[in-house]
Design a protein around this nucleic acid. Structure first.
Lengths: 129, 129
DNA sequence: CTACGAACTAGAGTCGACTCTAGGTCAAGA
DNA sequence: TCTTGACCTAGAGTCGACTCTAGTTCGTAG
């Protein structure tokens, strides 16, 4: 299946700008093939790879680190331990991020509880009048 | 208890720059008192408020929204429902963020599993030689 | 033939949240 | 007296990740 940049944008939720940007930044596992008139032609594989990159980005992996990972994949067999290292390190960061977020959520939830109680007590009074 | 900006920086983990920046941005519930020589003097209350703001920031609330919340608090009693709205809306965003992060984490964990299996099988072969 | 929509490149611009600089005040210790 | 260190203001600079612009080139539909 051959896809234009616009179709890939639709399928991934990235903008066409972002797609060209990612390519320039070297975070496409395989060089994008060019069709007539120099237009990019993407494959399903490219889309799958992009979806993985989107996961990494969404969870806060910086572009340069995605590039390093991509480069390892491009180099081919033999560097799996390094790829694993990158992924495991990131996995740990995401876990910590979630712990932090949970802590924030607890604080906010506590505050919300207090305000809810207060606002309800005011409402009750108003009804009682 | 009176605290200098440096002491507050230590206690909150914010830089003195960030503290002045937050003040300029209007995200301090009560105007910071000034001591001799125009130096800022913070109270424990200020520190507590800042810790709350840090929670909000860490969980992704933008500075302008923290300012809106702060303004409501500064205005005093009567606008608790609005404060509650802001907090609840943010709470929901944080929850969604965590769901997303969990999804990313699952994907990454899946990948890590595959690579671990592969790397181990290679290691096993090497031992077998 | 012309106009349109979608693609192309190189490079400039934006946005949020700090971070840093320059130039200055002030109090305390050597 | 001199130096150091913590503080002050106003405003410039940075960083990451896009996003947008200008100026083209195509292929196709009217």
């Amino acid at each position: 299946m051959q896809l234009s940049i616009g179709q890939v944008a639709e399928r991934t939720g990235l903008s066409v700008h972002a797609l060209r940007f990612y390519e320039k930044e070297g975070i496409l596992a395989h060089q994008v093939h060019r069709g007539p008139g120099g237009r990019r032609v993407y494959t399903q594989q490219d889309v799958d790879w992009l979806r993985m990159c989107i996961m990494l980005r969404m969870s806060g992996m910086p572009v340069p680190e995605i590039r390093r990972y991509t480069e390892l994949v491009r180099q081919g067999d033999g560097n799996e331990p390094q790829r694993l290292d990158i992924l495991k390190e990131h996995q740990e960061r995401v876990r910590q991020q979630m712990v932090q977020l949970q802590e924030c959520l607890d604080t906010i939830t506590y505050k919300v509880g207090i305000y809810e109680e207060y606002v309800n007590s005011i409402a009750a009074k108003a009804v009682g009048q």
